[in-house]
Amino acid sequence: MQDERPIISERVPSATSFLHKSMQKLGEPRVLGWLAVAFVLITWEAVVAGARLNPIYLPRPSQILIALTTMFRTGGLLSDLLATLARIFGGFAIALVAGTLLGIWMATSERVSAVADNFIAALYPLPKVTLIPLLIIWLGTGGPFMLAISALGAFFPIVINTVLGIRQCDPGLILAARDLGATNRQVVRMVLLPSAIPSIFAGVRLGLGVSIILVVAAEMVVGKVGLGARLYLAGQVLETEQVFAVLIVLAILGVAVTKAQDFIDVWLNQWRVS
């Protein structure tokens, strides 16, 4: 019987430490963050239900969730999402290629830089939404317009960061490449461009954010399909839970893009000199 004692005395603290541990877990920042979200949703649900608020002003989270799933299942929200994604990334891809090429050209030629500088200085600070009317006059409201507005948003940050990145390249690396026989083109492709990649990616980060804003804004103004169009229409007919549902999709899109960029950032660390 004597040898059972230590076992008992071990069990007692382990029971309290389990409670203690789960309390500690609740205090962990990550867990706490999700708990706060849950708390807000539950309070929201309870308050709206209790106060019998008109769902036109504030629908309950459960109603929004139902609206969201119905829109996806039968309401064609998926095709709206895909249309918006195609516009964002299509325009963004154009901006990435054109912006990087112009950036390289500007960074390697003082003349090109002098010619392009004034135009960029004038266009970069201009809020790009203000170009929507002009672009509609020129391109109509279809695909070309959507791609153009998306490309315009991402273009300038990418150009500017490409130029910066290339100009910051360690001159020692250029000397080393020339010493090893690299031609001007090889220096650009094998030294300047790779060394500028972290900076170009910083431009991509900024630019993609602007593209998303512009495409959704343009869809709200003239779109027939797309998340922005869906959002605007739902608002017009006071389908408030649909408005919230589209906002949720847009928020998730934003989070996904940010996470993907963080992931690429980690991978890009190999570029940074110790």
């Binding site: 360690d170 690396l173 080393a176 490449a177 090893l180 026989g181 094998m190 790779p194 060394s195 570029w271």
Partner: peptide, 24 residues
């Protein structure tokens, strides 16, 4: 040339650094 500051390409592996001139 061998440089005081090494001037190795930080994004290339050791082997790819050595092979740079041959690649060019």
């Amino acid at each position: 040339t061998v440089w005081q500051g090494f001037n190795l390409f930080p994004w290339r592996t050791v082997a790819d650094n050595v092979a740079f001139g041959l690649e060019v």
